[in-house]
Simulated assay, not measured.
Amino acid sequence: MTIELSLLITGVSVAAAVYFAIKGSNRAEKADIKNETASLTTVIVKLETIGTGVTEIKTELAKVKNDMQEDHDRLVKVEESLGTLWRRHDELHGMRGEEK
């Protein structure tokens, strides 16, 4: 009878150990899943922030390109006007030279 009792206690102990091991494992898995979810959420938020920053940079770059094109157009007009002024200057200077 003592052997049967000790086997029964051993069996119950083993069953309890297996039960608590499985329960602890499940708890650890749940905690790992929560941590992974939190980390993944953080990464997603940071990626969205980076995406927003990239979009803003693209917008600013488009504005800068537009401003450069406007400056280029203005420079071409100024150079054309300067060429016209030099021609007029040469014509007036030539007329004065002939009168003298």
Rank of each mutant, 00 (worst) to 15 (best):
K63L: 12
L82W: 02
A31Y: 03
L92E: 00
S81R: 14
R27S: 09
D67S: 08
Y19M: 06
A62D: 01
L85V: 00
D67P: 00
V43C: 07
G97I: 12
T59K: 02
H89T: 00
T84Q: 13
K34A: 12
L92M: 02
R27F: 04
E79K: 15
E79P: 11
E70M: 06
G97D: 09
V12H: 04
V78M: 04
S39P: 15
V64S: 00
K58E: 14
V43L: 14
M95E: 05
N26M: 10
T55E: 15
A16S: 03
L75V: 02
V18R: 05
R27Y: 03
M1E: 10
R87Y: 05
I3W: 09
R74Y: 14
G53D: 12
R96W: 04
E56T: 11
S25W: 15
D73K: 13
K58F: 15
K77Y: 07
L75H: 11
L5E: 13
N66E: 05
V12Y: 04
L82F: 03
N66A: 12
A15Q: 10
I22P: 04
I9Y: 07
L85C: 01
E70S: 04
A16P: 03
G11Y: 10
D71R: 01
E4R: 10
D71V: 08
E48L: 05
V14G: 01
T10P: 00
S81L: 11
A38C: 03
D71C: 01
E48V: 02
V14C: 05
K65S: 13
T52Y: 07
L61W: 10
M68F: 03
T55P: 03
D73T: 01
R74C: 06
T55V: 15
L5I: 03
L47M: 11
